[in-house]
Amino acid sequence: MIQKRKMNLFFFCVIIIIVTIGLHYLYSLSKLDEVIHAIEEEHEHHEGEYGNNKKHLDLYSLSELSVINTEVNSISDVEHEHLNHQHDHDPQDLTKDYAHVEWVNKPYLNDIYRANLHLKGLVISLLILGFFIYSYYIDKAKTFKELNENPEE
């Protein structure tokens, strides 16, 4: 009986921890709208600069947004110059462009890709919570069934 109480307490603590983590991730995700809004404003501001390169912009719309987002985060002046230099390149030169996009979209620099991590964390914590509840009720149902079958116990 004591063992069972301990297990219940353990399950309760785990559920509390998981719910807290899930809420944290949910809160982080709710801030994503602000980030996207800031990026859109910056994008409108920079539209003139990218106007000459419409095809390129369409192809990499998200990436371009991320570039601006990184500019909002203001990495450093040297890297800023590097980014501007990259935009002067031929849009067909995809290899160089990809390497550049890959760097500026690193999750530790870019809030959008970091939000992806939060979303994954949230989904996993919810799934674990589901598993806990499922296994708890399944065990309970099994015990109940066994007791019904063997009432003497």
Binding site: I18, I21, R114, L117, H118, K120, G121, I124, S125, L127, I128, F131
Partner: peptide
């Protein structure tokens, strides 16, 4: 954040 994500994934 990444470590918490990793631990949750292992638990899952």
């Amino acid at each position: 954040e990444v470590i918490i994500y990793g631990i949750l994934y292992i638990l899952f």
